[in-house]
Design a protein around this nucleic acid. Sequence first.
DNA 1: GTATTTTACGATCACCGTAAGAATC
DNA 2: GATTCTTACGGTGATCGTAAAATAC
Lengths: 112, 112
Amino acid sequence: MNLSQLEVLDAIVRTGSLTEASYDVGLTQSAVSYSLSRLETELGVKLLERGRQGVSLTRIGEEVLQHARIVLKQMEIIRQRTAQERGLAVGKLRFGCVPSPPRTTAGLAARP
Amino acid sequence: MNLSQLEVLDAIVRTGSLTEASYDVGLTQSAVSYSLSRLETELGVKLLERGRQGVSLTRIGEEVLQHARIVLKQMEIIRQRTAQERGLAVGKLRFGCVPSPPRTTAGLAARP
DNA sequence: GTATTTTACGATCACCGTAAGAATC
DNA sequence: GATTCTTACGGTGATCGTAAAATAC
């Protein structure tokens, strides 16, 4: 069980299909399928039902996803906080300048 | 950043040295050292100070560890819950047999 | 000296992409 | 037919262990 597998699971559920999920995570459908089936094998449970209209979580799948999302959230926090530590802003936050007192942004630009 | 790296970090801090941590996680010292330095490189921050008496967390390392432990806890929950779903007890629980009605353990032995 | 960590070097295995196959509509 | 998921196969890279070097005491 690794993180990318949890990311894939999350993406599949959010998008409702492996194909859409593959765009979301930047992999091929093949890789998404592989990743999911590997996760299911490792955990020994079926996480989602491949139905007529997209996919739907099994009961245990729902539970796994719940914990998986906490994991992903915490990983994101780690990335964000360490990025701040390095003096870089990352993630979905974009950077812009508005008229403001020098102290607000000057420190950032000064770092190499 | 992957899970085993977080496990290694946690083990190092719990045991106080890379050597002890290597026993804890079941890797060589070399692998533990590699894993830690890779994590630090990927995050771009120094997580712990290699001091005279063992290691000590940096400020940001402390923060990372806090989130890492939440992650590890959630992963453990996922393993436990899916194991229950499969009908198996895992983790530190050992297995033993005592005089009991056939239904209690017979089903387990029957599985290939 | 001992004990611990880091570095160097190979080997192995997990993961991915391409491509073909199966299933579903 | 189109679309989606799965399976097969090969290549590449991360991660591990062995072993040597560096570091600290």
